[in-house]
């Protein structure tokens, strides 16, 4: 498998995530889509790094992992608090803020 295939995979994953955020309605699913996008970016970083034998990309991936984890923690906290006060994780149910 040529390395460029990984790039294509990364783009596909990213696109899935990006589209998922736009079409799905459950906060948790949205959140997972975002994580998917982050990991797609990681894959792209590592692949670029691999193709050109440059280590920087892999180091970046490390940092991204940390950031993603921090995001998970914060995001879960927020989604949980909204879930506990509404009993629903659907984004559509959260509709108090409108024009």
């Amino acid at each position: 498998m040529a390395p460029s295939h990984y790039l294509i995979l990364a783009s596909i994953l990213f696109t899935i995530g990006a589209v998922g955020v736009l079409v799905r309605r459950n906060a948790i699913v949205l959140f997972m889509c975002v994580e998917l996008m982050l990991n797609a970016a990681n894959l792209a970083l590592v692949t670029f790094s691999r193709i050109n034998g440059d280590l920087n990309g892999q180091i970046m991936a490390f940092f991204v992992m940390v950031v993603a984890a921090a995001e998970v923690v914060v995001g879960l906290a927020i989604i949980m608090s909204i879930f506990r006060s509404r009993r629903s994780a659907s984004v559509d149910d959260a509709n108090l803020l409108k024009y």
Partner: peptide
């Protein structure tokens, strides 16, 4: 699935993530 379970489980999960990240480094 719709029932509630203690918030502590989430807290544990979050703490785990934090320390797991520490371990990664």
């Amino acid at each position: 699935g719709g029932g509630r379970f203690p918030i502590k489980f989430y807290l544990t999960a979050m703490l785990f993530i934090v320390f797991d990240i520490e371990i990664i480094f």
